[in-house]
């Protein structure tokens, strides 16, 4: 195998392992559009990265984290409906991002690369960031897991029995924001949410407990990552979308499995 393919595989598998467990909670908490909103903001982060001459991934990370906090504050205020907040932030951030990219003169921004990902161009440094950042994300997720599940079942019950509900909520959305930032290079802004929710939706159908669903989502995502990359190489299709298509196949397969039992 060529070096670039090994790097691409390692990167895609890392993203799948992060997205699986996080995505399960995203699905259970019905937050799919939150992932989307954060991803839309990523483009603004890329532009800001260029503007302030820092690595794009850093610009993206800061932007998604700020968006996450804004989301929590605006939705918590209750003065604007939740889906309206999502719409305003998602498309506001996307428009700002496109304007900012347009204004970034002299720098050629590979827009398609950010929209659809460019996993074959992953560098050694990207890999270190992906696996290091991923390990931190999963460690924090494991730390808040029980509380997160409890408040997903019922926030009042969780709070009454001593769970720090607002803190856990905030931590979780920050984790999603960080994961979106990390995943962008692999599957791109448009498909980040797909990698969060498709393996999770598949695993949820086939599991009896939240923990097994999380593990299975990670595994399914990793298989889809490898299969998608290989397929993209074989038929020369774009890598990021191919990974999502592989995940989609697994989901459709799970639908038929379920009806047989």
């Amino acid at each position: 195998m060529d070096d670039f393919l090994i790097r691409a595989t390692l990167a895609a598998v890392a993203v799948a392992l992060i997205a699986g467990p996080l995505g399960c909670v995203v699905v259970w908490r019905r937050m799919a559009y939150v992932g989307d909103t954060l991803a839309h903001g990523a483009l603004l982060g890329v532009a800001l990265g260029f503007l302030f001459d820092v690595a794009p991934i850093l610009g993206v990370l800061v932007t998604t984290l700020v968006l996450a906090v804004l989301l929590v504050l605006l939705q918590g205020s209750g003065r604007i409906a939740g889906d309206t907040v999502l719409g305003i932030l998602a498309h506001g951030a996307l428009a700002l991002g496109l304007v900012a990219v347009g204004l970034t003169q002299g720098v050629r921004v590979d827009l398609l690369g950010y929209l659809f990902g460019d996993v074959l161009a992953v560098t050694r440094d990207d890999l270190i960031l992906l696996w290091g950042g991923g390990a931190i994300i999963l460690a924090v997720l494991a730390w808040i897991w029980r509380d997160l599940l409890a408040l997903t079942v019922d926030p009042d019950l969780a709070a009454a029995e001593g769970v720090a509900v607002p803190r856990t909520r905030l931590l979780f959305i920050l984790l999603v924001a960080a994961a979106v930032a990390l995943a962008m290079k692999v599957v791109g802004v448009l498909l980040v949410t797909a990698l969060l929710i498709i393996p999770a939706a598949t695993a949820g159908r086939l599991s009896r407990t939240p923990e097994r669903a999380a593990g299975m989502a990670a595994a399914l995502g990793a298989v889809a990552a490898v299969a998608g990359l290989q397929a993209s190489l074989a038929v020369d299709s774009p890598a990021g979308p191919s990974i999502v298509v592989a995940a989609l196949f697994a989901f459709v397969l799970s639908l038929s499995l379920r009806t047989r039992t």
């Binding site: 259970w28 997903t152 969780a158 029995e161 769970v163 949820g204 009896r208 407990t209 939240p210």
Partner: peptide, 22 residues
Amino acid sequence: PQRLVIDRVLPLTVRRLMTLTK
């Protein structure tokens, strides 16, 4: 609580529910 509805999308057995918060 007075009313508790557990979403169908959340895979949860009684055994796991028993250790929900502790």
